Simulated assay, not measured.
Amino acid sequence: MNVTQLIADVSAALGFEDAQPLTQGGQKLVLRGSLSGAPAVAKIVMIQPGPNGEVTLQRAHREVELLSAVDSDRVVKVLTDAVEIGEPTESVCWVEEYLDGDDLHAAFDHAWNEQEVWGLLSDMAEALSACHELEVVHRDLSPGNVRHTSDGRFVLMDPGLARHLEKTALTGAFQPGTPGWRSPEHVPGGDPVPASDIYSLGILAFVALSGSFPVNPHVDQAAYDRALVEQQASSIATLVPGISPELRQVVDTCLSRQPARRYLDGAELRAVLAEIGAGR
């Protein structure tokens, strides 16, 4: 791959200016630059020949389609359509708003206070509510897909594994999500639903408060899958005994093993948070 030529082609196709590589990993290259004078990032996904490449291409178009439909400042905004580069297609690219700050990986090196966790729960409930309202399940709510910005917001990103409940033929069936951040419904044979995103949010809150996973992912895959399906996560109060009753109830409910015992979607969680006066 000639990166210099690729950047030139993408910049021309998107009207993207001052492009500089920001991150690169796997099949994706992210550029920082500007669009119409405003800071922005261009995302480029490489497309390999063959059936797997076609799946990757469809997933990229789906990501842009979903981001375009969601209206929330807690979900990253897409600024252009997805544009394919090459004939046959060698890459697909689009522009998103630039978000400063960092994802949550680095933030889990210390225990969060309750106010920080309420903020995470509130912002992600709003983001998920906007997705669930469109019958879209994110399916990969994990530290790498949540950005904590300098103004204090938590913003949801990268719905590349999302599934539209009314368009299963388009969006595909089971996707694995990120190990450690999966719900019981992510186990092969399961069917992720809006409450599955709520479970993953519960994991984020649990780890932020305690530094530990509610279900240990550091075992072989079969054992982890079995634990997700069969074991109820311990109450967060067992690891954080000083936690307030309100936050304990919210986190424990998010992590109920059975989907029907959780908050059913982002809207229900938002309503509960508003009722108890938590969050933003």
Rank of each mutant, 00 (worst) to 15 (best):
173 A>P: 02
154 F>N: 02
167 K>Q: 15
144 G>N: 13
39 P>T: 10
99 L>N: 02
215 V>A: 03
231 Q>E: 15
73 D>C: 12
42 A>H: 07
278 A>D: 06
99 L>G: 10
120 L>K: 01
278 A>T: 03
41 V>H: 08
51 P>M: 12
51 P>Y: 05
53 G>H: 10
267 A>Y: 05
116 E>M: 15
226 R>V: 04
201 L>K: 04
31 L>R: 10
181 W>Y: 14
80 T>C: 09
20 Q>P: 06
6 L>R: 09
80 T>F: 01
30 V>H: 01
109 D>C: 07
48 Q>W: 03
43 K>M: 01
77 K>F: 05
87 E>Q: 11
24 Q>V: 13
90 E>T: 13
220 D>V: 04
172 G>M: 03
75 V>N: 03
267 A>R: 14
94 W>L: 06
104 L>W: 00
193 V>K: 02
193 V>E: 14
13 A>D: 06
102 D>V: 13
15 G>A: 06
103 D>S: 14
208 A>D: 01
202 G>Q: 00
219 V>E: 00
42 A>K: 06
101 G>I: 03
68 S>V: 05
224 Y>S: 02
53 G>Y: 07
97 E>P: 10
52 N>F: 08
235 S>Y: 08
178 T>N: 12
214 P>V: 00
218 H>Q: 11
50 G>D: 08
267 A>L: 06
143 P>F: 01
72 S>L: 10
243 I>H: 04
61 H>Y: 05
276 I>W: 04
258 Q>M: 09
144 G>K: 13
272 V>A: 14
217 P>T: 14
250 V>W: 03
261 R>D: 12
222 A>C: 07
92 V>C: 05
4 T>Y: 15
71 D>R: 14
154 F>Q: 01
25 G>M: 06
83 V>Q: 06
209 L>W: 07
107 A>T: 13
245 P>A: 09
252 D>E: 14
166 E>K: 09
38 A>C: 13
62 R>C: 08
140 D>L: 02
45 V>C: 03
100 D>L: 10
186 H>L: 09
243 I>R: 11
138 H>W: 13
186 H>I: 02
12 A>N: 15
80 T>A: 09
40 A>C: 10
224 Y>E: 13
192 P>I: 01
181 W>C: 02
268 E>R: 04
127 A>L: 10
85 I>N: 03
278 A>W: 01
224 Y>K: 00
189 G>L: 14
225 D>F: 15
151 D>F: 12
139 R>Y: 08
224 Y>R: 01
203 I>S: 12
235 S>R: 00
13 A>C: 15
170 L>W: 15
228 L>A: 11
66 L>M: 15
99 L>E: 14
66 L>N: 06
73 D>W: 08
236 I>G: 08
84 E>R: 04
272 V>M: 07
208 A>H: 00
62 R>Y: 09
14 L>I: 03
96 E>L: 11
263 Y>L: 03
245 P>G: 08
103 D>V: 04
177 G>Q: 14
176 P>S: 09
254 C>L: 09
151 D>W: 01
109 D>L: 15
131 C>M: 10
174 F>M: 14
